[in-house]
Design a protein around this nucleic acid. Structure first.
Length: 276
DNA sequence: CGTTCATCCTGACGGC
DNA sequence: TGCCGTCAGGATGAAC
């Protein structure tokens, strides 16, 4: 489940391997994953181009080409983008294959095929609604307590859903949302507008803390996630609540509960995260 | 406009 | 052993 720390780890591990390489040929095994432009034009825009920079915005991964085109990937749930050395066997869910000029391949694979791919110039950003509507992101200078508090005051929904909404904060998913709420001591069903300034400040710090811990651990691997070199993350060993249902809370020993909030599985400690 | 809910898809797992 | 239902979860678009 790639969230910001996972996508950032993929960005870094791919940059090491593919910057300066040229795409010689593209195999499109599942064309419907390419949302814009049409697959033929997608191939045309990227073939022969040199990869000059790797970017990331929220959970979107961007591969900047020398002709100004940006190849954008959103991995959704089970997408993977990995570098395969010459002769290395690809996995069975390979969907889009980029052949590079050193004999290696960059392979987009996806078991559940929810991922989305694009190739846009800088005037076409509105083609990807989720990208240009992204909120500010954790660890960024402009992600302040004031920004968070102002957004919270305007929301009548539950904090869990608020944090998952990319328009509010870019890059959080189910894992880091549950973890941040635990660290801040906030119940996932808490109504946003009722959250105090003090709690908002605590939440702001907790979000930054869990995201940087996730990046330092190279992401969280629960089932599918691997980085750009096919290696699993380590943050699954450092989780407080996500995936810990029926286990004792690491802070107070109370049994961690799992409930549904807005249709999403949600883990929390009923004692550390009391509803106010 | 804000919020909620079903939907896309495949595989793993539990119950019987 | 096999069949069925449920769950996993990011984003989108429809419905309210």
């Amino acid at each position: 489940m790639p969230e910001m720390p996972e996508v950032e780890t993929i960005r870094r591990t791919l940059a090491k391997n593919i910057l300066g390489k040229r795409i010689e040929h593209i195999d499109i095994l599942l064309p419907r994953l390419i949302k814009f432009p049409e697959p033929d034009l997608y191939r045309q825009r990227l073939t022969g181009q040199k990869i000059v920079k790797m970017r990331r915005e929220g959970k979107y991964l961007g591969m900047q080409m020398e002709n100004g085109i940006m190849a954008i990937f959103h991995l959704r749930m089970t997408g993977r983008l990995c570098y395969f050395k010459d002769g290395q066997q690809e996995d069975k869910y390979a969907k889009i294959i980029f052949y590079l000029d050193n004999g290696a391949r960059l392979i987009y694979s996806d078991m559940r095929t929810f991922g989305t791919l694009y190739a846009i110039n800088d005037k076409e950003r509105e083609k990807i609604k989720g990208l240009y509507e992204l909120g500010r992101e954790p660890l960024a200078k402009d992600f302040t307590t004031e920004y968070l508090l102002a957004k919270l005051k305007k929301s009548n929904g539950k904090i869990k859903m608020f944090l998952l909404n990319q328009k509010n904060i870019a890059g959080l998913g189910n894992i880091y949302t549950d973890e941040a709420l635990f660290l801040a001591g906030i119940n996932p069903e808490q109504i946003c507008s009722a959250i105090s300034k003090e709690k908002a400040e605590k939440l702001h710090n907790s979000i930054n803390q869990v995201i940087s811990a996730g990046i330092n651990d190279g992401g969280t691997t629960f089932r599918d996630y691997v980085n750009g070199e096919g290696i699993k993350g380590k943050h699954q060993n450092n989780l407080f609540v996500y995936g810990q249902a029926k286990k004792p809370c690491k802070k107070c020993g109370t049994i961690i509960e799992k409930i549904k909030v807005g249709g999403r599985g949600t883990c929390f400690c009923p004692k550390c995260q009391k509803l106010k």
